[in-house]
């Protein structure tokens, strides 16, 4: 009965299918890829990108985009290092909240320019991509701290990043919680549905009385907070930080979102799809060296996946539109 719904889950199913195929082929070449440790690493690697992708989905659904995610992530990763330099006993939760707050502030800056000053998000966030990165480098050179290593951070912080509960990494758990909340809100809350409405037809959204500016601003703030959290988690997982953390991540994130079936022109897509997209792309990247593909090809994967997904979406869109138009006379309930 629910055509909209079945289309969406169709996309998610095909990502899962692709994922199974990639894993099967790679495991055939090297069985350790599917060992408990291998799977653990696979999820761990995908978690940070998934977190970014969840935030990005909120924006892309509203016909916006945030290209500054890599820089914001770098900034909050660096912030967490600096907090430990200032006080090596800083509680983990305080660092996380500080990272989220800084991320949210960056998001608020982007959001204000987009929602209030009405500058296109592409332009705003392309600008802040460099501005935030500049602040990051400026901070590093002003303090003379170019690299922060594991021994400068608290052991609790490091063990949180690499720890797990019942075999599930902490990072993956956090991504799952974020996924659950965002997915629930997008599906069940009026404000969530309004994000789709804004992206689907901004003019109709205004006529429907939706406070579009406020919704878009809030999306930027929430997405910023998630990106901020991702930066902190990156620091706690890798244990070494410099001012270039997160460089180029925007490509991976946008690719994950689009591969996950979130329409780049807004109005449709799910956070589950985006998270699966993130998992698929990181898995492919992880599989390439095992399959003997030279390392320099790995960056190209994200770009190629992005192009492929957009072309595919376009083709599917046209077919669906055509079918819906033709079905319009068959509309008995």
């Amino acid at each position: 009965m629910n055509r909209v719904h079945s289309l969406l889950s169709g996309r998610e199913m095909s990502i899962v299918g692709a994922l199974v195929a990639v894993v099967a082929v790679t495991a055939f070449v090297n069985p350790s890829f599917v060992s408990p440790q291998g799977l653990h690493d696979m999820f761990l690697n995908a978690s940070i990108i998934a977190l970014l992708a969840i935030g990005q989905t909120l924006l892309v659904i509203t016909r916006n985009i945030d290209l500054s995610v890599g820089s914001v992530m770098g900034l909050t990763a660096y912030l967490s290092g600096q907090m430990f330099i200032a006080d090596s006993g800083t509680p983990v939760i305080v660092v996380m909240l500080a990272g989220m707050a800084l991320g949210a502030a960056c998001g608020a800056f982007n959001g204000a320019l987009v929602a209030i000053a009405k500058v296109p998000a592409l332009v705003v966030t392309l600008g802040t991509l460099y501005v935030f990165r500049g602040i990051d480098y400026g901070w590093a050179s002003a303090t003379g701290v170019h690299q922060i290593n594991a021994d400068q951070m608290s052991p609790e912080f490091l063990s949180f990043g690499s720890g797990s509960v019942l075999g599930i990494p902490h990072l993956t758990l956090i991504a799952l919680v974020a996924l659950g909340i965002a997915g629930y809100a997008l599906h069940n809350w009026r404000s969530g549905r309004e994000l789709y409405a804004i992206g689907s037809n901004p003019q109709a959204a205004r006529l429907a009385g939706i406070p579009a500016g406020r919704r878009v601003f809030t999306s930027f703030v929430i997405s910023g907070a998630l990106v901020g959290l991702a930066g902190v988690l990156h620091a706690s997982y890798f244990g070494t930080i410099n001012a270039s953390v997160g460089t180029g991540k925007e490509l991976a994130v946008v690719a994950a979102v689009v591969v996950g079936g979130v329409a780049i022109f807004g109005g449709s897509g799910t956070v589950l799809g985006a998270a699966l997209g993130a998992l698929l792309l990181t898995t492919i990247t992880g599989a390439l060296p095992i399959l003997g593909v030279p390392a320099f090809w790995q960056r190209a994967v994200d770009g190629a996946a992005l192009l492929l997904a957009i072309s595919l979406d376009r083709a599917v869109m046209l077919r669906v539109a055509e079918r819906l138009r033709k079905e319009r006379s068959l509309r008995r309930v």
């Binding site: 629910n2 909209v4 789709y196 409405a197 689907s200 037809n201 003019q203 109709a204 329409a263 109005g267």
Partner: peptide
């Protein structure tokens, strides 16, 4: 009439 084409 203007609608949200992506929604039900």
């Amino acid at each position: 009439p203007i609608q949200f084409p992506d929604l039900s």
